[in-house]
Amino acid sequence: MSSEQQAKDLINQAQKKLNSWSFFGPSNKYEDAAELYEKAGNMFKLAQQWGNAGDAFVEAAKLFQRGNSAKFEGSRAYDNAAKCYKRSDVSAAVSALKEAVILDQEGGNFRAAARHYQDIAELCESADYDKPKEAYDAYTRSAELYNADDSPALANKCLLKVAQIAADMEMYDVAIEKYEQVAATAVDDPLLKWSLKEYFFKAGLCHLCTGDMVKTTQALSNYCNMDLSFEASREYTLLRGIIDCVDQGDVDQFTQIVYDYDKLSRLDPWKTAVLLKIKKSMESDELR
């Protein structure tokens, strides 16, 4: 018998279970039927019928909710549904994860809810779905829930994603706030202090994108006070040099100092994109 046929047989058994009378009460038959739907979902997975598998797990989750099972069972079923759906329907995967979040929050399982929001955010960032605003919102909620769970390191990881997406959407004030928020938590942590230079660099680049060189200069001064080693870094030198280039309207010098920096410290695609925005802004100012 094929996996697909086994799955269908299990669903038929579940339906019979739901239509039967149970001495132990209705909650028991709902849970029994839910377990049969979960088995059917696994059989559909073996047959690589991802949509049907997801549907079976969603049905299991709904039945767990009708019974007396812990919310964990329903959340787990929705999570399994999402893993199947993302093979064929990202939108359905996101919807399943949102249902899991509701159950996790109601059950006080904030870490699981945070993880599911993180999964939602990653799906929203995928090329197949590409919804940056939804990813931004999901990472924000994930960070809040990780903080509620007293997991600051995981929260900060999400906040850095919030900052990056905010910068991509040209919400520079938000990006700056998040980078500085993460930096503030890292100042007194010996394990995180090595990352300060990176956070300050990204925040500084976002400051430059606002076009306010006075505030950018003040921010760099604050960063140097927070981390005395920052002023001696190549990142600080580049940011300080860009401020001078912007003030003087010197695009050629801007290009040169960025090139010199990149030769020794390779710029990643995100930083390169931000620097190109700054350069284009300088070029447009030249044409006025």
Results as ranks from 00 to 15, higher is better:
residue 2 S to A: 12
residue 2 S to C: 13
residue 2 S to Y: 03
residue 5 Q to L: 07
residue 7 A to L: 08
residue 7 A to H: 05
residue 16 K to Q: 03
residue 18 L to K: 02
residue 19 N to E: 14
residue 20 S to N: 09
residue 21 W to S: 15
residue 24 F to T: 12
residue 24 F to R: 14
residue 27 S to P: 01
residue 29 K to V: 09
residue 33 A to Q: 09
residue 33 A to D: 10
residue 34 A to K: 06
residue 36 L to G: 02
residue 44 F to T: 03
residue 48 Q to F: 01
residue 53 A to N: 01
residue 54 G to C: 00
residue 61 A to C: 14
residue 62 K to V: 01
residue 67 G to S: 12
residue 76 R to T: 04
residue 77 A to D: 03
residue 83 K to Q: 10
residue 83 K to D: 15
residue 85 Y to I: 13
residue 86 K to V: 11
residue 87 R to H: 06
residue 94 V to W: 00
residue 94 V to G: 07
residue 95 S to F: 12
residue 104 D to P: 01
residue 109 N to E: 11
residue 123 L to R: 09
residue 127 A to L: 09
residue 128 D to G: 12
residue 133 K to P: 02
residue 137 D to C: 00
residue 137 D to G: 01
residue 139 Y to H: 15
residue 143 A to S: 12
residue 144 E to H: 07
residue 146 Y to K: 05
residue 148 A to E: 06
residue 149 D to S: 05
residue 151 S to M: 09
residue 154 L to R: 14
residue 157 K to R: 12
residue 157 K to P: 05
residue 160 L to F: 03
residue 165 I to E: 10
residue 170 E to F: 02
residue 172 Y to K: 01
residue 172 Y to C: 03
residue 176 I to K: 01
residue 179 Y to G: 03
residue 182 V to E: 12
residue 183 A to C: 01
residue 184 A to Y: 07
residue 190 P to Q: 07
residue 192 L to M: 14
residue 193 K to G: 12
residue 195 S to T: 10
residue 207 H to G: 03
residue 208 L to A: 11
residue 208 L to V: 13
residue 211 G to E: 15
residue 215 K to N: 09
residue 217 T to I: 10
residue 219 A to G: 07
residue 219 A to Y: 12
residue 220 L to D: 02
residue 222 N to G: 15
residue 225 N to D: 10
residue 226 M to F: 09
residue 230 F to T: 03
residue 235 E to I: 13
residue 255 T to N: 11
residue 256 Q to G: 06
residue 258 V to H: 05
residue 259 Y to H: 07
residue 261 Y to N: 07
residue 266 R to W: 09
residue 275 L to M: 08
residue 276 L to P: 00
residue 277 K to N: 02
